[in-house]
């Protein structure tokens, strides 16, 4: 199963938690080719963390198959562990030790010699922009620095596959940007990344492909653009200046649409799905002008992943179900 060029191959993965039903898996299928970033997207309890923990050999599963870097997770966890890095939701670095001591510690535990572990720690501190703070205890690091150290600690042996479980949770925008940049750099060097996130913009920013997980199943999979295209592609949207002309405006642009326009008199917003984006935008301006309707904020919009999620699961992505 799976081409040898795939870093992660998951087929029919099932996991039930006794008692609770949140977070279990109900037949997950997933393929992540080498050198790509796969974003595993879904609300709390969808099974994102469960999937990552199974692939990182931290959790057993009931049935199905999972290969990471060519090795079966259930049969050869030792081989898998030698080829992966993991950044979990909780900071997995030692708060008391300095950044450098942390990396040397993890290097030693990867069975590097003392000198090699020190050299590797120095390299990684440079690469992740932590050299200045290298000898300070981690508890004095900012959230973004801590995550970068977490990433660095996962990269001791330059693993083939890196798992990131909500890598920017709890970070401020600056910290998120730092982590995103660090991840992009790793991917630029050929690391395969499987990333879970609840943030649609994060998946949009980093992932080459997205798998949408809902109640333990992958409900949609594809490039971010492909997923958005499933909603019918682009929309022309505008706000009518005069509330009484909303219906007129909708009528005017109706012939552009691949479906009926939507009109919301309350916020004076009209939208219509269109096939040929840019042409449709010019045409809309002409039609509205001809109808004598003044508009603000006329724009061509591609659907957001939020809308994709709503469309595919029937629920908004941000309706967080607390099942912890």
């Amino acid at each position: 199963m799976g081409a040898s060029g795939d870093a992660v191959v998951v087929a029919g993965l099932r996991k039930r938690y006794g008692g609770k039903n949140g977070g279990g898996l109900d037949g997950v299928d997933l393929v992540v080719p080498h050198g790509t970033v796969c974003g595993l997207l879904g609300p709390n309890g969808a099974g994102k963390t469960t999937t990552v923990r199974i692939l990182a050999t931290l959790l057993r599963f009931d049935s199905g198959r999972a290969l990471v870097a060519g090795f079966d997770v259930a049969e050869r966890p030792d081989q898998v562990r030698a080829r992966i890095g993991l950044v979990g939701q909780n900071p997995a670095v030692d708060e008391v030790l300095s950044g450098r001591r942390n990396l040397v510690l993890f290097g030693r535990l990867h069975h590097l010699g003392a000198a090699a572990a020190r050299a590797r720690a120095g390299d990684l501190l440079d690469r992740f922009g932590l050299s200045d703070a290298a000898d300070k205890p981690v508890k004095h690091y900012s959230g973004g620095m801590r995550r970068r150290l977490d990433l660095a600690a996962s990269m001791i042996l330059s693993p083939a596959v890196l798992f990131l479980d909500e890598p920017t949770v709890g970070l401020d925008p600056r910290g998120r940007a730092e982590v995103w940049q660090a991840v992009r750099e790793l991917v630029g060097r050929g690391t395969t990344v499987l990333l879970t996130t609840q943030h649609l913009d994060e998946a949009d920013q980093l992932a080459t492909r997205i798998a949408l997980l809902d109640t333990g199943k992958v409900v949609a999979e594809g490039a971010p653009g492909e997923l958005k295209a499933r909603l019918g592609g682009d929309r022309v949207e505008f706000v009518v200046r005069d509330r009484s002309r909303v219906a007129d405006a909708a009528r005017a642009v109706a012939r552009l649409g691949t479906a009926e326009p939507t009109a919301d008199p309350d916020d004076r917003r009209v939208g219509v799905p269109v096939a040929a984006g840019a042409t449709a935008l010019v045409e809309a301006v002409r039609l509205l002008d001809a109808a004598g309707v003044a508009v603000d904020d006329l724009a061509l919009r591609r659907p957001t992943l939020d809308e994709v999620f709503l469309h595919l699961t029937g629920r908004p992505a941000d309706r967080v179900e607390v099942r912890k």
Partner: peptide, 27 residues
């Protein structure tokens, strides 16, 4: 606050270290 380095540092890391078989009293 540190920033990410602009230049790409070549990855001279020990990527070729053979995976160590786990287990064993010695380890």
């Amino acid at each position: 606050m540190t920033t990410m380095p602009e230049t790409v540092v070549p990855d001279t890391g020990p990527a070729d270290v053979p995976p160590v078989p786990s287990g064993g009293v010695r380890w």
